[in-house]
Design a protein around this nucleic acid. Structure first.
Lengths: 228, 228
DNA sequence: CCGTGTGAACCGCTTCACAGCG
DNA sequence: CGCTGTGAAGCGGTTCACACGG
């Protein structure tokens, strides 16, 4: 049990939840840090360290109880209760995001959608009537929206983000390729596939040994009397 | 000038390129690390350090030449020549990615599209005829495809990724929420918006001070004879 | 002087190594 | 004994602070 949990650890937890849920559904009841590490492509040490930030869930010599650990991880993340979402922008991207299964799932409920185009306002998307973006602040406050997904053109993104911040929202997913400005108490995650492509080309260009994604060939195999 | 460039630096370069291009188009000819840092929401020190990995581009007392720096950054990333892309999966997501402007741009050319559904094979998407995924390896080799975008359902993702790897591709963007396994000399970038949402909820839950995204209130204002 | 380039200090995360519980 | 939990060491990346060039 620790004081402050590193941000990277929090970012890894959704993966933990994902894997644990799959294990649970398949009927696996218990798992060790070694196997879990293999599934998550990390080291056993990392698994144990990560989990240690939240408490002691393992049984020595036995590993972790899958159900219990799954519950714990989702609890830490604050999942298991629905969060209300709004989408801003209903172009191809916005529509695809909402219609795409598995994005809005049991934990995230779409409760408002905004666009500025009068061609689209009044129509429905994802079971919600599209509203004028001018009503954004008011509606967010009324409906207690907690997370926003920004899928508008780059030129409008910062303006929309500012409005969302003014409405009091503390978490946003932004698809516009801009360097957005938000207050430091607001969570912002950037989804910019183009930048991902553009950074991969660096490694292709010169055929690098790659920034160690590997796990093979580490230690931890050392248990007791090793020949060395 | 340094030996090995940190991976994080490479991941930041697309942003540098983006901003520099914008500055260039607006007619800004020169910029200092302070202003560039402000635009990228980093410190001037970080800007200077990052750039120092590739050479000395600044003029002391003057800052950096925007055009020259832009050229340099794109050169380092290996942009400025087109890279050939393939898309695998033409569901809502795949279609949205391709039809969405600004994704396939001047640097990335779509040269093949695959699906397994016979309903879609033979139709066109993004100016390319959709092929059976069974032809994937062969086609990738024939057309010298360098980067693949995987947008298939999670259950099929690892199989598709394996095929792409076998075909010799060294860089992939994967949209399926799985923990993909690739050889360590293959670049893999994961786009999983659901996980981004799921990690933000942690901070909402307990209304945290946030994992310092801020830049304000740092040092660097100290230049010479400071009172302190 | 102003602002870059950079070794050195610092900081946070990862990995190690082992104490200790079942 | 096996495997977790955890201080301590190690490492990569950021920030500092200053030498030096225009």
């Amino acid at each position: 049990m620790k004081e402050q949990v590193p941000d990277v650890v929090i970012q890894r937890l959704p993966m933990y939840a994902h894997i644990l849920r799959a294990l649970k559904e398949v009927g696996v009841e218990s798992i060790g840090s070694r196997e879990l590490g293999a599934m998550l492509r990390t080291t056993p040490a990392q698994i144990r360290k990560d989990l240690s930030y939240f408490g002691k869930f393992g049984k020595q010599g036995m590993g972790y109880d899958v159900s219990q650990l799954y519950e714990e991880v989702t609890r830490v993340l604050g999942l298991g209760r629905p969060w209300s979402l709004a989408l801003i922008g209903t172009g191809r991207l916005g529509r695809a995001l909402i219609e795409h299964k598995g994005f809005v799932d049991e934990d995230f409920r779409l409760v408002a959608v905004f666009d500025k185009s009068h061609r689209r306002i009044g129509k429905k998307l994802g079971g919600v009537v599209i509203q004028d973006v001018a009503e954004l602040e008011q509606t967010i406050k009324e409906r207690g929206i907690e997370i926003c997904i920004v899928a508008v053109p780059p030129a409008e993104a910062q303006r929309v983000i500012d409005a969302v911040v003014r409405a009091g929202v503390k978490a946003m997913l932004n698809y516009a390729p801009i360097v957005a400005r938000v207050p430091k108490n607001v969570q912002l995650r950037q989804i910019t596939p183009l930048h991902a492509l553009q950074s991969m080309t660096y490694y292709l260009k010169s055929e690098y040994p790659a920034p160690s994604t590997s796990i093979e060939g580490r230690k931890e195999k050392k248990t007791r009397g090793q020949i060395n």
